[in-house]
Simulated assay, not measured.
Amino acid sequence: MIHKADSRGKADHGWLVSNHTFSFANYHNPERMHFGVLRVLNDDKVDGGRGFGTHPHDNMEIISIPLEGDLEHKDSMENSAIIKSGDIQVMSAGTGIMHSEFNKNSDQPVKFLQIWVYPNKRNVAPRYDQVTLDKTKSKNKFQQILSPNADDDGVWIHQDAWFHLGNFENNIETNYQIRKKGNGVYAFIIKGSAEIGDQKLEERDGFGVWDISDVKIKATSENTEILLMDVPMTM
């Protein structure tokens, strides 16, 4: 399953430009509803001082990965935080949560990935967490940034999912082992280019594989940054 960057759904609201890998809001494509439990992968750019006003979520695991700039978060659990490149934020919406997200700066955009994963438990108590990643751990290898386990590296969610980030020099090869039998892997090229299996991928392309135990990945340009999302293929 390949989703080229320019084939994604696009919403341009002026202050917000959002590219949707999967169906979202006004973008509906019946062939692009989800990849297993991975429901939303939005690549958002928000103008200075603008953002999303307070709005509700429930029964979804919501992950934000800032790429550039500073994103200000406020929610109904009285959390107030600023996340930036190198951080990862998670919310379990569970029984219901209200939150807002704004660009903290007025003079530069904020760019971030917003990812939604269906949970394996419904109506859990809502929660919020964020961590700052040690970027040295993703140099030419994949660093775990999310798992089902609260005591593992990164943040955790209510799902048998593992996310990894890697920053690779040109021609570096790595072999990623699927974390749970039956899971698939969706790779998103944040920067640069790579070959995954026999598939050539460029910046902002996405590629999903399943029914495998491991996958070979090779960076084909300098400073290639890849996000891997290892997720159950059944709800």
Results as ranks from 00 to 15, higher is better:
residue 4 K to S: 15
residue 8 R to Q: 12
residue 8 R to W: 07
residue 9 G to V: 01
residue 11 A to E: 02
residue 13 H to M: 12
residue 13 H to Q: 12
residue 16 L to W: 07
residue 20 H to Y: 09
residue 21 T to D: 12
residue 22 F to D: 04
residue 23 S to A: 10
residue 25 A to Q: 11
residue 29 N to C: 05
residue 30 P to K: 08
residue 31 E to T: 05
residue 33 M to Q: 13
residue 34 H to W: 13
residue 35 F to E: 09
residue 35 F to K: 05
residue 37 V to I: 15
residue 38 L to I: 01
residue 43 D to E: 14
residue 43 D to G: 08
residue 43 D to L: 07
residue 44 D to S: 06
residue 47 D to N: 13
residue 48 G to W: 00
residue 48 G to F: 07
residue 50 R to P: 00
residue 54 T to N: 09
residue 55 H to Y: 04
residue 58 D to C: 06
residue 60 M to T: 03
residue 61 E to D: 04
residue 62 I to S: 02
residue 63 I to T: 04
residue 66 P to S: 06
residue 67 L to H: 02
residue 67 L to N: 01
residue 67 L to Q: 05
residue 70 D to L: 09
residue 72 E to P: 00
residue 75 D to C: 10
residue 89 Q to H: 14
residue 90 V to C: 10
residue 92 S to P: 11
residue 94 G to V: 05
residue 96 G to F: 13
residue 98 M to Y: 13
residue 99 H to M: 12
residue 101 E to R: 14
residue 101 E to A: 06
residue 102 F to L: 06
residue 104 K to S: 05
residue 106 S to A: 10
residue 110 V to L: 07
residue 111 K to H: 15
residue 113 L to N: 01
residue 116 W to M: 04
residue 116 W to S: 02
residue 118 Y to E: 10
residue 120 N to S: 14
residue 128 Y to L: 13
residue 130 Q to A: 00
residue 137 K to C: 03
residue 137 K to Q: 13
residue 138 S to I: 00
residue 143 Q to S: 13
residue 143 Q to C: 11
residue 143 Q to Y: 15
residue 149 N to Q: 14
residue 149 N to F: 14
residue 154 G to Y: 08
residue 155 V to T: 04
residue 156 W to Y: 15
residue 157 I to W: 05
residue 166 G to S: 08
residue 173 E to N: 15
residue 177 Q to D: 12
residue 181 K to R: 10
residue 181 K to A: 14
residue 182 G to N: 11
residue 182 G to T: 11
residue 182 G to E: 14
residue 184 G to P: 00
residue 185 V to S: 03
residue 188 F to E: 01
residue 190 I to S: 06
residue 191 K to M: 06
residue 194 A to K: 01
residue 195 E to S: 13
residue 195 E to L: 05
residue 195 E to R: 08
residue 199 Q to I: 03
residue 204 R to F: 12
residue 205 D to K: 04
residue 205 D to H: 07
residue 207 F to H: 15
residue 209 V to M: 12
residue 210 W to C: 13
residue 210 W to Q: 15
residue 211 D to T: 03
residue 217 I to A: 04
residue 219 A to F: 11
residue 220 T to F: 10
residue 221 S to T: 09
residue 224 T to W: 08
residue 224 T to G: 06
residue 228 L to Y: 08
residue 228 L to F: 10
residue 230 D to A: 01
residue 231 V to A: 02
residue 232 P to F: 12
residue 234 T to Q: 14
residue 234 T to I: 12
